[in-house]
Amino acid sequence: MRTDSAKLSARKLSIELFSIIAAFVFIYPLFFIVTMTFKTAEEAASSPFRLPSSLHFGNYAKVWEMMHFPLVFANTLLITAVTIALIIVIGAIAAYPLARRSEKPYLFFYLFFIAGIMLPFQLAMIPLYKLVNMLHLVNTYHGAILIYSSINLPFTVFLYTGFLKSTPKELEEAALIDGCSIFRAFWTTVFPLMKPVTATVAVLTALSVWNDFIVPLLFLSEQNHRTITIELYTFVGEYITNWDLLFPGLVLSIMPLLVFYLFLQKFMIKGVAAGSVKG
């Protein structure tokens, strides 16, 4: 018996060891790039694998200026935050009638939204380009926010509707009898119940909007409205051979989301897993 449990713990230990080594290999590319940013150009060329002899922050300061970092960061944050807020409000209220009513028109609109999950953005891209130009929404924040909302709405409506169908009607009916309007009843009793879905929607939308490349490539090319990804793209285009500027640029652009992730990792991983299991 004792040898059995000894064998078991030895096994567990070897699994643990193997997993840690795998994780190290896995994360090494990112670790490597971060160490490169602290090296001088000579150090980077002569001994790429060694740790930097001293922390050299000069390149960060330079790149911070060159990428207009505060501006592009604020742009990305604004567009992402407003999109999340908007999509939660309009997605949740749209899901309410779809989940509570079984008449034909409601079923039609449900399928109407679900169809959007399958449609690739590339199919909308070209006519959208023409439309957005016509509506003078190019290089505007509200243009980008509306485009992102429309792209992310189908899945949001799908998640909210699925969740609402599994919650009892009694609560809001009690509120309705008390004389609340449907809107107030929804907002005060149903919406707070949907917190888990709201969290999933917020995480998935944050990742897809913050990291998006094609919408800013087409619609936010002007300097003042650029997001982090499109600024990085332009920056790399100019300095592709200057590794000593490129690496700080990369690290700087991933930092905000990485910090956000490290603080909210439990919440984010749970949100992703929940969203996928429902989908």
């Binding site: 997605g91 749209a94 009638p97 449609l119 959208l128 439309l131 189908p154 449907i182």
Partner: peptide, 19 residues
């Protein structure tokens, strides 16, 4: 309930499904 649906339907059909 139609008013609940309207904003989502409008944005989605104008900027995604329409194109």
């Amino acid at each position: 309930l139609a008013c609940f649906l309207a904003p989502a339907v409008l944005i989605y059909s104008l900027l995604f499904l329409g194109p």
